[in-house]
Write a protein that binds this DNA or RNA. Sequence first.
DNA 1: ATGCGGACCTGTTAGC
DNA 2: TGCTAACAGGTCCGCA
Length: 271
Amino acid sequence: MPELPEVETTRRGIAPHIEGEIIQNLVVRESRLRWPVSEGLVSRIQGQCIKDIYRRGKYLVFTTPVGSFIWHLGMSGSMQIVETGTEPQKHDHIDLVMEKGTILRYNDPRRFGCLLWAGADPNQHSLIASLGCEPLEPGFNGRYLYARSRNRKISVKSFIMDGKVVVGVGNIYASESLYAAGIRPTRAAGRISLARYAVLAEKISQILKQAIRAGGTTLSDFTQADGRPGYFSQVLQVYGREAQPCARCGCLIKNRVIGQRASYYCPVCQT
DNA sequence: ATGCGGACCTGTTAGC
DNA sequence: TGCTAACAGGTCCGCA
């Protein structure tokens, strides 16, 4: 479910309720996420103040004076702020209970997410340490993509979805960015010019920013922290639009599987 | 090192 | 209407 805009939307939604507050408890109703939620985590963070919540790729990093923990939403995870006494629903696996009574509630039907202790320096954590460039930070540009892609034979779509290259670009925004840049998703990453990568990098950050402004993309079940859906789904040009006309040329959008993921593109506008 | 397929889960939808 | 198969926003791991 959540790609970078959805994670960032989640962060912005929860931060005002959580930052600067003291953790009273962590209630784990289901610990079997992608990796088991460690039993020691509760005692580690109980009574600690959350100094800051920031995003690295699709990870949310919660900072406390004694160390940090990282939280990933996986494919189907979402977070909501609820008041004490709100009855947990199905798949509401974890509550982060704050002393002032606010609860950060984590729901994740498929349990592909994770909640892990990351110690004093989260950048040292193996899941974070190997991550590539942030697409909304200055180091991300056409030259970077060009340099990283030399001699790579994978498709450009798989390339920009590789978190070791650039973080946060998931299946929806990969299709959308390549459409906006006019690049065929099947094209080999190593055979794309610097000029085209400059356009692609620009489109990626532009589309991600636009999606954040819209509160992310809701396909079926993503919700912002206040329960509202994301509105970027209304703006999608190709994702999920197989056999519908391309907005630019009118010819029909195709869907081909690349790297085991559905990939949408216009056979005329993207070369 | 790179690229590929499989794996982890549940829920929803499409097709017979 | 009911059963079954395919598919879904992520990404790590093991193998060639």
